[in-house]
Simulated assay, not measured.
Amino acid sequence: MRVVIGECQVDYGGRLTAHLPMARRLILVKADGSVSVHADDRAYKPLNWMSPPCTLTVTAAADTELAATTGDIDSKIREVWMVRGKNGDYLQISLGEVELDYSTELGVDPGLQKDGVEAHLQALLAENPAAFGDGWTTVQREYMTAIGPVDLLCRDELGCYVAVEVKRRGEIDGVEQLTRYLELMNRNPLLGEVRGVFAAQQIKPQARTLASDRGISCVVVDYDALRGLDHAEDRLF
């Protein structure tokens, strides 16, 4: 991971355009190739970012095409980062005065330690993959990727691989997490095309909408039924 704090202006181009004027910000470059720009608020959410796979090219300001053709370059800008995404979109970060530029290796993260209910829910689903559909099988729990483990790797009734992310409460963050896993897994030729399932006891409407937009299926899981504490034949209605 590379951490940079300094003056920068940011321009995004792609499906839309966006501009952040020069200001002091935090820039993170992670081992998975992602680049994100943060202000001193918004908790974890960046002002702008580029998800992997993407490429980062760093050029001295004096050597940029803009300076060469027009001479019109802000004297504060020392170098320009060009981050290009897989769909042709780009993030241009023009850096001025840099206060901190630090790089380190974090290593493989062990992943979030789930609470008792969530961990038990994952184990129950691994033992009962038919909760997702007839003919499903569990390949592996905690299937490791370069950015952390996917809760379950399964095969559906057609034998295709499916990555399953398990949450007690399904929110947008969980969908984003599964999206990142799928981006990496779908680049693995040994797996082929991998689709995603977001499984939880409750799933918020916003998470459902985002999952649908990403091509991810949502499954609401009955925890008590999986534990054998609730039987449909015993219900009055």
Rank of each mutant, 00 (worst) to 15 (best):
L66I: 02
C218R: 07
A225R: 05
E79K: 13
D63N: 11
Y181E: 08
I172E: 04
D151F: 00
G159V: 08
D173L: 15
A232Q: 02
G135T: 08
E97I: 00
A119W: 10
L229Y: 13
L100W: 00
G159C: 12
A23I: 05
L125R: 01
R25G: 06
L229I: 02
V29M: 10
D101V: 10
H19F: 06
L153S: 00
S212M: 14
G148D: 05
A126Q: 12
Q201T: 09
R42M: 14
Q122F: 00
G159H: 02
C160E: 15
C54T: 15
L66Y: 04
V150Y: 02
V10Q: 06
P21N: 13
C154G: 02
V221E: 01
E97R: 12
V162G: 06
N48T: 04
D222Y: 01
N87Y: 12
C8E: 11
D115M: 07
T69C: 07
L125C: 06
V83R: 01
A146T: 03
P189L: 07
P129R: 06
T69M: 00
G111V: 01
G107T: 00
A43N: 12
A23C: 10
L56V: 13
A225S: 12
E65K: 03
V220Y: 08
R155K: 15
A225W: 00
D32F: 05
A131Q: 09
T69Q: 10
C54I: 14
I5S: 06
R42P: 04
A39P: 09
R15S: 14
N188G: 12
D72Q: 12
G192A: 07
G88Q: 10
